[in-house]
Write a protein that binds this DNA or RNA. Structure first.
Lengths: 220, 220
DNA sequence: AGTCTAGTTGACCGGTCGGTAAACTGGAAG
DNA sequence: CTTCCAGTTTACCGACCGGTCAACTAGACT
């Protein structure tokens, strides 16, 4: 009831192995054999639990999204502070995650959802729609965060939270593409403050740039 | 015997075939056999002119960038009008191109450079650095356009054209990722105006949104 | 006991991939 | 004529891919 631990082994191991491998590399460059090897499972078992590699990845994305919500979206976007501080917390969380992967694996992976779209978006409708679902969910978090800012008077009352959330997501995807080009987590911190301008919380003074604020951008 | 040299060069045909195929699909999903078939050339010839598939793609990117500069960047960013109008022309040009490919092939390809980064960025340093070089060149066009706006007084004098150009590029990449998720060129038009906000030319009134200006004429 | 069944195993398949090797072609030069 | 060589052609390779299959195992239910 509370746990289905009588069968967690192979299926869960496959999901975790697929996540680790596909996240740091890519869907196409990670084969089922490698996934199985890392999971400590034979290939036949993979196809006992999943009907195809795509099916495995679909389930992996669900688990990934759950963890992403729990570890990044909710803590940063529903945490304390004003909109501006929440955006900073969000950027910091993304940076921390990408930097950690980069430190451990040598790769800066970028956005796993965006990566999958680019790889498979033009020929696998199933994967594309699944990724779209998850990105819509991410945008939903942005939207709620923005709406709260509107309700609190931090954003103009006429702000279109839905449209602005989509722009937020677009810029974030682009930032992660740029970071992947550079293979450098610092790019996330350098471009992250652009979100302030896009969302309109760069400060009461000017619309073009935010002043150098303390040592917040510093990295260990 | 006489028409065998009708095609100017097998090399050129291979480059064009690679571009057509890889652009609408992807690097990984287009094989050398298919490229050769489209180019009307046997595989041995491919490896006479290029040392590897990656080498072919590298050369293809150079030609693609030249055409992109000539057909999109220069006409839109160095054309008449203020910064804001140039941004609109740029977005229109990108949209026109993506929509045309989408109409003809059924695929919305997104940014070929961004696609390649996501596909190969984490395991092929050569491709990654080549893409970075080309994207830097694109950002250079943005930067010159912005600098001109600063010189003309359309942008604040303290504007950092280099940093802003990078943000412009990041948002554009993100917009194309979003359009690829949606597989809908309209997403480019919907998100394009966010560039106004990011760059700070959304108008003298407010920082959040630009007024709905209908009838964005089909200008390319 | 016997049966049922979810799960596991390892051998195997057909196909595709990037890339190779060697023979061949035709025109230019000595 | 012979030599030379950029370019072409054809057949082929080994590796790897996602996926299949029938046999097997161990626990649960009757």
């Amino acid at each position: 009831m509370d746990t289905q631990k009588n069968q967690p082994d192979s299926r869960t191991a496959l999901l975790q192995a697929a996540r680790d491998l596909i996240f740091t590399r890519s869907f196409e460059h990670v084969g089922t054999a490698e996934i199985c090897e890392r999971a400590g499972v034979r290939k036949g078992s993979l196809y006992h639990f999943f009907s195809s590699k795509e099916d495995l990845v679909l389930a992996m994305l669900d688990a990934l999204m759950d963890d992403f919500e729990r570890a990044v979206l909710v803590p940063s976007l529903e945490g304390p502070g004003c909109i501006r501080e929440r955006i900073d917390a969000f950027v910091q969380a993304i940076h921390g995650f990408e930097a950690a992967v980069h430190r451990e694996s040598g790769y800066l992976p970028g956005c796993p959802f965006g990566n999958l779209i680019v790889e498979a978006g033009t020929y696998s409708p199933g994967l594309r729609q699944a990724v779209k679902r998850h990105l819509d969910r991410v945008a939903g978090h942005f939207q709620r965060c923005l709406q709260e800012g509107i309700d609190r008077g931090e954003l103009p009352a006429h702000t279109d939270a839905l449209a602005l959330a989509e722009r937020w997501l677009a810029l974030m995807e682009g930032i992660l593409v740029m970071a992947k080009v550079d293979q450098d987590p610092a790019t996330i911190l350098r471009l992250g403050p652009a979100l302030h301008v896009l969302i309109g919380v760069s400060g009461p003074h000017t619309t073009s740039e935010d002043p150098p604020e303390g040592a917040a951008g510093g990295n260990a």
